[in-house]
Design a protein around this nucleic acid. Structure first.
Lengths: 229, 229
DNA sequence: TCCAGAAAAATTGTATCCAATCTTGACAGA
DNA sequence: TCTGTCAAGATTGGATACAATTTTTCTGGA
């Protein structure tokens, strides 16, 4: 899923990372020409990457009108966060049932990286805190679960970029540390509680209460549009 | 996700259906030329469709060697079925919390279709029994959950095509009826039990016990290949 | 007969090209 | 000044073209 064999893969990975790190903000247009030129490839390869990103709901492709970084609606955002809760609860339960010491080592190594990145600041930190959750999912040994979590966490990044306060990444990673501690003890009850609380905190960084986030005129107006009458 | 705006969409939908209905069996090569000619379009459009299908793990694309209907490994198959259990349990729980009478009507209408298709036989039946589960997921109102279930159920179809007994679709739909009955009563305990049992039955149609299913030589031999020594 | 290696054919990866569609900006009329 | 219309420019959808790679076929030698 990472190494670049085709040019399309490389572009896919780069664009994806840029979106997740919130360098490409929701709504930004992604003209094939321009991207192709930036990467030094033709539109053909770019198109392949965009198709894949749109399959993940990270970009929207409207026919004849080009691609843009997706702008999730409020409803979508809530749905995605709900789904994330569901999936990550499952991750924690599976990990408590079955977690090697090697896995715990991997988690703690990653915790260290997160802290260092947090010190240093920058987009790397945003990405790493997300990747922690993906690592958790991978450690369940279920490729499918890991893939779904990967997708959902990426979309959460996007949502935070859209609705979150400026530069709001996921979290200070202190709760991550507590989660790892609970997992080490195989304490499913505590682990799910921490995860639940943690995701609640992440979600609360988004202003999903319908408050005045962005003057997204078209979206607001679309609610008042009726069939031509 | 269905109406064909671009040519790529049309091909995507057609190929997907063919795979799910087990008309295109796992391992079958999908040369871009040939498919393009079959649909009367160029390779460009075909490629787009294949990219999307490979993002769903329904086809495998190996660099410079073309696309083929995916041939899930045994491990993958088990993983997918596990994930399906996880997701569909969530579907049932959500539905018991919140299910309109309109939704129940929709389910019963669909049950009727399934029965009729089962009488008539043919690939339509295979597809419809799968679509019942997708309908369930859609009725939760969560687009994300529905999409994940859609993907997972499709992959299960593929797995049954690979490992299942000949023409083994999902199931006689009698358990579907019992599930709807339990949902109507909002009986979460019974509903999850039925779903669990039902998916167990579906899974058991696949010979995932490692028995002698297919002489998948390359895969078998790959376990004996060591680094060149 | 069987195998190794080379040539030919087939297939993919990617760039380029054209028509269709959308967007932008200018211009005329109110 | 504002608004509606239309032409010019930009962008996408899709086909074609060509180089790179793989697969198949052919051939010569053991």
């Amino acid at each position: 899923m990472s190494t670049q064999q085709n040019r399309g893969d490389a572009i896919y990975a780069s664009l994806r990372q840029a979106i997740i790190e919130q360098a490409l903000k929701p709504g930004v247009k992604l003209p094939e020409d321009q991207i192709g030129e930036a990467f030094g490839v033709s539109r053909t390869s770019v198109r392949g990457a965009l198709i894949r990103l749109s399959a993940e709901s990270l970009v929207e492709m409207r026919p004849n009108r080009g691609a843009a970084v997706a702008t999730p609606t409020l409803e979508e955002a809530c749905d995605v966060f709900d789904m994330r809760r569901t999936l990550e609860r499952e991750v924690v339960l599976r990990l408590c049932r079955n977690l090697s010491t090697r896995a715990i080592d991997a988690l703690e190594t990653h915790l260290g990286e997160q802290e260092r990145a947090l010190m240093a600041g920058g987009p790397r930190s945003i990405r790493l805190t997300g990747e922690f959750h993906i690592l958790l999912a991978e450690l369940t040994g279920s490729a499918t679960l890991a893939q779904f979590v990967n997708q959902i966490v990426s979309r959460c990044s996007l949502i935070l970029a859209h609705y979150g306060r400026p530069h709001s990444g996921e979290c200070g990673c202190e709760e991550h540390a507590r989660l790892v501690a609970a997992l080490r003890e195989r304490d499913a009850e505590a682990a799910t509680r921490i995860m639940e609380h943690h995701l609640g905190a992440v979600q609360s960084r988004a202003r999903l209460d319908g408050g005045e986030n962005d003057p997204d005129v078209t979206e607001i107006l679309s609610r008042y549009v009726r069939a031509a009458s």
